[in-house]
């Protein structure tokens, strides 16, 4: 044991590390202490993903209704007229809402970086590497993305189901395409997480580039 540690001492001696569990703990608490602000950011992701999810769910239910072959439903569908134009419009709307969502995340994270310059500088004085700082900020954003997306998926799915049930009665529930909607849920969850991470990249990079001497700055 002693010889082994002596042998590895040469290589591990100059290593600096931050275990993932510790990083998760730190970033989780940083969110908790700014609970209301985090909630606003989460809200942005929540509504963006809810919108995406409702569109996807709506499409799946429509398809299921068409496949059911009930003449009554077919008549209703024709009456509503699901045409190509409104589909492209929806794609645009969803894309825009997701874009707004990313901008919101970036903005919130940048604010958080400016607010915490001293904390970041201190961490660097204690020996944190640039990548630790990036890791902490990206993790924070990932948590927000996760909570927001899960909520958004549930809300979007329920909202669309209920809204379709008001037009078609019990059919959407009876014919509910579970597998399709589950896949849509996974996509939306992935999209939410992806957007949260993309939104956090630039702020996290900015934070990692802060000089450690900033920890000494006394003015706020």
């Amino acid at each position: 044991m002693t010889t082994e540690s002596a042998a590895t001492a040469g290589t591990t001696e100059k290593q600096i590390s931050l275990p993932l569990s510790k990083a998760i703990e730190i970033s989780f608490r940083s969110l908790k202490i700014r609970f209301w602000r985090s909630l606003i950011t989460i809200g942005g992701i929540f509504f963006g993903i809810a919108f995406l999810m409702s569109i996807l769910t709506g499409a799946s239910i429509n398809e299921a209704l068409v496949d059911s072959g009930s003449p009554q439903v077919r008549a209703l569908l024709e009456q509503k007229g699901a045409d190509g134009d409104s589909a492209t419009q929806q794609v645009w709307l969803v894309s825009l809402s997701l874009l707004v969502c990313v901008v919101g995340i970036t903005n919130a994270m940048l604010m958080s970086v400016t607010e915490r310059y001293r904390e970041i500088g201190t961490m660097k004085c204690l020996g944190a590497l640039d990548k630790f700082i990036i890791q902490l900020f990206v993790l924070e954003s990932t948590f927000q993305g996760l909570v927001g997306s899960v909520g958004g998926v549930i809300l979007g799915c329920l909202f669309m189901l209920i809204s379709m049930m008001t037009s078609y009665g019990w059919d959407p529930l009876v014919l509910f395409p579970v597998a399709d909607v589950a896949w849509s849920g996974l996509y939306s969850l992935g999209a939410g997480l992806g957007l949260a991470i993309i939104g956090a990249l630039y702020p996290a990079y900015r934070a990692s580039q802060m000089p450690p001497a900033d920890a000494m700055r006394t003015e706020v």
């Binding site: 100059k14 290593q15 600096i16 730190i26 608490r29 940083s30 908790k32 202490i33 001293r118 904390e119 500088g121 201190t122 961490m123 660097k124 004085c125 204690l126 020996g127 944190a128 590497l129 450690p212 920890a215 000494m216 006394t218």
Partner: peptide
Amino acid sequence: YELAWLRCRKIGYIFQTFNLIPV
């Protein structure tokens, strides 16, 4: 990396504003 190591192991910093991590 070596700078981070130096700051971590060789130097201890004390600041005017304490700079503890609040969380």
